[in-house]
Design a protein around this nucleic acid. Sequence first.
RNA 1: GGGGCUAUCGUCUAGGGGUCAGGACACCGCCCUUUCACGGCGGUAACACGGGUUCAAAUCCCGUUAGCCCUACCA
Length: 490
Amino acid sequence: MSRQVVTRFAPSPTGMLHIGGVRTALFCWLFARKHGGRFILRVEDTDLSRSTDDNIRIIEEGMAWCGLEWDEGPVQGDPSQWVGPHGPYRQMQRMELYRAKIQELLDKGLAYRCRCSRETIEARRKTVETAGKVFQYNRGMDRGKGCADAGHDASQPAAIRFRMPETGDILVADLIKGDTRFPADSLDDWIIARTGDGPGQIGVPTYNFCVVVDDTHMEVTHVIRGDDHLNNTPKQIPLFEAFGYDLPAFAHVPMILGADGAKLSKRHGATSITEYQAMGLLPSAVRLALARLSWTPKIDGRAVESAEEELLTDEQMIQLFDLADCQKSAARFDMDKLQWINQKLIQRSPWQELEPHLRPFVPELWDNKPAAWRERAITATQKGKSLTDMAEALRFAFERPESFDEKAVEKFLTPSLKPALAEVAALADYTHDALEAAFTSILERHGLKTKDLAQALRVALCGKPVSPGIYDTLMLVGREEVAERLKRWL
RNA sequence: GGGGCUAUCGUCUAGGGGUCAGGACACCGCCCUUUCACGGCGGUAACACGGGUUCAAAUCCCGUUAGCCCUACCA
């Protein structure tokens, strides 16, 4: 009988939620949902210099916007509260546990106090490296010089090191990377707790220690994280063993690179999830695009094979998700594909579903419009690549043009069109069918083509020769306002 | 320097001994069209390099190169 699946996303609050982190979180979320398990959000704030409530809030908001709801973790916006049986979910609030576990290792002789100053270690490192060897604490040329053997003055504050195995290989059985072996003699006794405040004190524990304790105490069954942590795993495994803990399953997902193949950073443009939000992307599109980096969904053992199949719903993603279908190599982030997915999802969303997402991008006036108008506004612009495109395409409906495209005026607003425009200005019935009928009649009487009138109207009404379908354009501007905007051209 | 991971069209990828090396995005062309778009149809384009193993290698093995990660009292 296997335990319920539990995954976790454990970001450190550095000031933004990185898109790469979101992708890792997404994999954790998909995996938990697929197996009917739980998904934990845990905040790794042991780096005191960077962690603030504000930074934690940024993570919570980013996750929430992405639709990656967590079953256990902090309560959004309230630092004092959490949901779930294994809280608190902020590491700085879990110090008692860590200190007890460190004391346990100390008592068992599996860890020891290290009083080597940074200066001493640097000096020793230098000696070893000038001899052309690799420096490892208390290993190789440094053997016998570490505190494990030295019996330093116990009255001094100390850091704490974990006694690592010295021979053999440490095996990481990774669900994505496969079996990976690390020679034990390439590692050394690493620090699990920083120097404490006074003699006998235990300082703030380090990342690699907290993860092991937390993952176990939070009953995490599957550690799914970025592959920058693959090299940390052989440090952590002996620690699990020292505690007598069961090993979770590990899955290290490849990194996301910028378009040029370098690590995704500021200069590639958007790295923070809030920037994607501001670009007018749907959270569902971000989820799909991110999921498809390094993951190929297989339907009946066959990779997706058409544009239609590419456009998976969340339900389909959850159903299809499998770590075995994940790539081992890093993927470059493709903004074009994200935008294509966004466009497709915008196109196929019912207008009511789109409205709350579009709302932040349009003027306040939006709320005063009747439902029929809002529906028309959305359906008339639903071919845009983004919500910002839609909002831009709807500007004419909220405000009069500030300026008029001179070339377009010259080309389309010819004097001969005035009588036809005057007739349009006088139209009373603003239903689609009535407008169409009226246009047919006007066109016929004036010997014009649809294009002539439509373009002239677009320029007169919107200032430029681009707008939604001409009847939609008229209806969105509204009868009285059309008459008003047409006056100056008659 | 040491250890680890990775390598198929521009990008995401399928393919795991015999394929005209398949698809999606992007790009280009044609069609549709009241503008911009949407849509439809078609096209260009790839196995990093060098050795093996084999009748046969993108596929298996070794090496090289390149990129990334770890090598902190950061996470």
